[in-house]
């Protein structure tokens, strides 16, 4: 049947069910739960893909366990979702790998990021992990601004980094330490570094 000959069907608009606004449940690695709107989730490419793949209905969201985000703690995740809710519906910049030429930090974001350095670095790490491009832009910009007017020694303090000498000494100490307990400490240090624990970089 050609398109022209297809029967015309009258649609009763009132009969179409209105889809309810969906809120997903997420859980941090320290078991804190968050309810986040579908629109806010779109700011995170990672989470958006995840919920699309899961294909949850409203009932599933309520009945099934919260979606676990295992490597972000509750304090950081709270900031991430606050940011996503505030900026929901806004255009998402395309991440082509280049550094954006202009990034302005809005008042809301500035207040949200008025936190200690450790938490700010976790926020950046989370923004990168969850692929929230604009949050990554503003948080990196904040860190770049923090470097202005500081000496390398001050930067070490701000970013919790060892100096070349300290780094060298730590490596030497690790090499000298042969007993299993020392290796354990070394591995723990490396693990913490990988997870963005003590050191920013």
């Amino acid at each position: 049947m050609s398109v022209e000959n297809a029967p015309v069907v009258d649609v009763d608009e009132a009969a179409i069910p209105v889809e309810k606004k969906m809120y997903y449940r997420f859980e941090s690695n320290d078991k804190k739960e968050f309810r986040v709107s579908e629109l806010a989730i779109q700011q995170s490419e990672t989470l958006n893909r995840l919920v699309e793949a899961m294909g949850y209905t409203s009932e599933d969201v309520e009945n099934k366990p919260a979606i676990a985000i295992e490597n972000i703690d509750g304090k950081t995740l709270k900031l991430v979702f606050q940011w996503c809710e505030h900026h929901k519906g806004e255009a998402i910049p395309v991440d082509d790998g280049s550094v954006p030429k202009i990034v302005e930090i809005p008042e809301f974001d500035a207040k949200l990021m008025d936190i200690d350095n450790g938490l700010l670095f976790k926020l950046i790490w989370a923004a990168d992990y969850l692929n929230i491009v604009q949050l990554l832009n503003v948080s990196c910009k904040k860190v770049a601004n923090m470097a202005q007017g500081k000496t390398p020694a001050q930067l070490r303090r701000v970013y919790l980094l060892p100096s070349d000498e300290e780094d060298e000494a730590a490596k030497r100490a690790a090499q000298e330490a042969q007993d299993p307990r020392a290796r354990e400490v070394e591995e723990e240090f490396e693990e913490r570094k990988r997870q963005g624990g003590n050191s920013f970089f």
Partner: peptide, 28 residues
Amino acid sequence: MPDKVMRRIIGFGGFQDLFKFRKVCQDL
């Protein structure tokens, strides 16, 4: 921190920041 983050932080700074970052530590 991942390269993507580092590129942004350094890219948002100027040349002076870049020189300073180089002096912070060997890794950087």
